[in-house]
Amino acid sequence: MPRVLLIETDYDLASNIGDYLRRDGHEVVWHKDPQAAIETADVVHPEIVVLDLILSTHSGVEFLYELRSYPEWQKLPVIIFSNVSEAELAASYEGLAHLDVAAYHYKPITRLDELAQSVNLALQVSQL
């Protein structure tokens, strides 16, 4: 059962996302705090990360930079599921192309089944 590391600050959203992905056949480990998520990743070895960008202690982009700084996690698939649109993010940063993001989903217009499909696709690609 593929293990998903979910980083999301809101309990209700995390609960719904987690329940949906579990029903889709994944094991889900949830953290609100990106620092705790990094420490957990060392222990549970997730196969994929689903990440919000607006977090509390550090931003999702900071988390991604840290994640990619570790050789063992440079190829770990990451899916962004955020309330910040890609266009808005591009206005602040140079985009996330250099951080190897598998897919970018904007929360207001992405259904949970679409997120689950994206997770499955990213996992398949990572196993090629």
Partner: peptide, 14 residues
Amino acid sequence: LALPLLQIKTTLEL
């Protein structure tokens, strides 16, 4: 306001 609406949306999808 996106937060409560997203909570409701994802609950209904679930």
